[in-house]
Each structure stands twice: as structure tokens, then as C-alpha cells.
């Protein structure tokens, strides 16, 4: 039934005031519809009693009562459970701030693979930081703030590629945000499978990519996989010309270099 314009305005104003304390949009929408229906019920009853349309509108609006009073009563009915909200906030804060015992403050031992055929070398470094993992349906949303502290910087980047002093102490690795389908790797252990990291490489921010001080090499830290890969190198010591690539696009360089390295390993 179409209401008179003025009645419609007054009804909408009443509903707006009554629903002001309600925060949730869905609840507001439901209540708005409900109050409109109840108003029309009342109006129909007045019309059945023989009142004119104008009189029925007035009577029905009068029967709604004080919008403010109704709002106060609705607020009591629809107030959120405060203690649940506080508990949820506390839990989230704890999850974010406390170290993740299975992954943080661990000593990692890894191998450096050099693209130019130099035999791999063993290195160790400590991984520290905070990590928060959400399992969202089938996917994993991963938010990390981590940093690496190589303990054996000299071995990690032998000269002339890297000044070892550059690598000592703490470095910030930045904030990693990855969102990856779980079917790529349902197990997340101390180290991500390399394929998984490879697939999600495009999500890793460039803070994980570093140029060596002499500017000849671009490196990607696969911290969880223990291994450091030299992405690309213009170092004249690099023997294989095929591996020498420009690092203008480090991510693509990584993908190309990694493929070349895997082929290199397979051939040998």
C-alpha cells in the first residue's frame, strides 16, 4: 500500500531514530522492514474501524510511541556480548604478539648454492619474529613480521660478492603477506616446500630481495627453505654466460635463474 508522502517521511524519521542505537546493518534492515509492516498492520486496523486515511496514519504513528524509548529498549536486546568481544581481541593480540613456538627462534642450517658451479657451502642462521596464520576456508592467509639474523655472514656471502659485515646483526625482512591455496601445500612445517615458495614468490615483497654491495648480484632469501639463491649475477667470476641475467626485474630473474639452476642440477 502506498503511503501518503508526509506519512512516509514521518514513519522513516521515526524508524531512523528508533534504530539509531543498532549497529549491525543486517539487523537494522530487518527491523526497518518489520516496523514498516507493523505500522501498516495498525493503519489497516484503523481503516477497518472506519477512519479516513489521514486519521489512520495519525493514529498508527501515535501507536508507535516514542522512537527514542523504543531505541533504548532495542539497544538492550541487541547489544553485543561485551565479554566475547574482549576475549576475541585479547586472543588476537596474543596470537600476534607471542612467538610462534614451532617456527620462531629456530636455528636453521642451510646450503648456499652458487650458480657458477662453486660447491655448495653450509651456513647457519637464526630466524626470529612473529607470525600469524589464518586458515581461511581452503586457503591460508599468512601475515608475518620476521627478520633474519645470519650468524655466519662470512660464509653466507663470500667476497667479492658481499661484504660479510653487511650481513651481521639484525636485519628487517619486512612484512610478508601471502595468500595461497592450501592445495599447493597442506603441510606447513619448519620449511616451506620450495615449490610452494616458488609458486607464491610473486607475493613476497621486494624487501626480501637485496643487491649485493658491489651491485653485481641480486639475492632472494628463501628463509624457510634454508637456502639462499643468487638470483642473477653480473659478476665476471660467473662462468656460465647463460646464467648471467639482468636484475631489472628481480622476480622474473629469480624464476628464470631458478629454472636454470634446477636444470643445471638435473644435468649433473
Amino acid at each position: 500500500m502506498k503511503l501518503h508522502y508526509a506519512t512516509n517521511l514521518r514513519l522513516r524519521a521515526w524508524i531512523r531514530v528508533a534504530l539509531r542505537p543498532i549497529r549491525l546493518p543486517l539487523t537494522r534492515m530487518t527491523l526497518r522492514r518489520e516496523f514498516s509492516d507493523h505500522f501498516e498492520d495498525c493503519r489497516d486496523a484503523m481503516l477497518d474501524k472506519g477512519l479516513s486515511e489521514r486519521e489512520a496514519d495519525e493514529e498508527a504513528l501515535e501507536l508507535l510511541g516514542s522512537a527514542r524509548e523504543v531505541g533504548k529498549l532495542l539497544k538492550l536486546v541487541y547489544r553485543p556480548k561485551i565479554y566475547l568481544i574482549r576475549a576475541a581481541i585479547l586472543l588476537l593480540a596474543l596470537l600476534y604478539l607471542l612467538p610462534w613456538p614451532t617456527r620462531i627462534n629456530r636455528q636453521f642450517y642451510g646450503q648456499i648454492y652458487w650458480m657458477d658451479g662453486t660447491p655448495p657451502e653450509s651456513v647457519s642462521f637464526t630466524l626470529q619474529g612473529w607470525k600469524l596464520d589464518y586458515l581461511f576456508k581452503r586457503d591460508r592467509l599468512n601475515l608475518e613480521l620476521i627478520w633474519d639474523r645470519p650468524e655466519d655472514g662470512e660464509k653466507l656471502f663470500p667476497p667479492p660478492l658481499m661484504d660479510p659485515q653487511e650481513m651481521m646483526g639484525y636485519e628487517s625482512s619486512g612484512l610478508i603477506f601471502t595468500y595461497e591455496p592450501l592445495f599447493w601445500g597442506t603441510y606447513v612445517g619448519p620449511a616451506y616446500p620450495s615449490e610452494e615458495l616458488f609458486e607464491s614468490t610473486y607475493m613476497i615483497p621486494k624487501s626480501y630481495l637485496r643487491l649485493s654491495p658491489d651491485g653485481t648480484s641480486c639475492m632472494l632469501s628463501e628463509s624457510f627453505a634454508h637456502n639462499w639463491y643468487i638470483l642473477a649475477s653480473n659478476n665476471p667470476n660467473t662462468k656460465d654466460d647463460a646464467l648471467r641475467t639482468q636484475y631489472a626485474d628481480p622476480l622474473q630473474s629469480f624464476i628464470n635463474a631458478r629454472e636454470a639452476w634446477i636444470n643445471h642440477l638435473n644435468d649433473n
Binding site: 518489520e34 495498525c42 508507535l64 532495542l74 538492550l76
Partner: peptide, 12 residues
């Protein structure tokens, strides 16, 4: 009782 007063009671 006003209608507006009744409905919060019913919701509760």
C-alpha cells in the same frame, strides 16, 4: 502499551 514498546519485548 504502544506498538513501538511491544516489539522490543517480543524480540527479547
Amino acid at each position: 502499551m504502544k506498538e513501538g514498546t511491544l516489539y522490543p519485548i517480543l524480540h527479547n
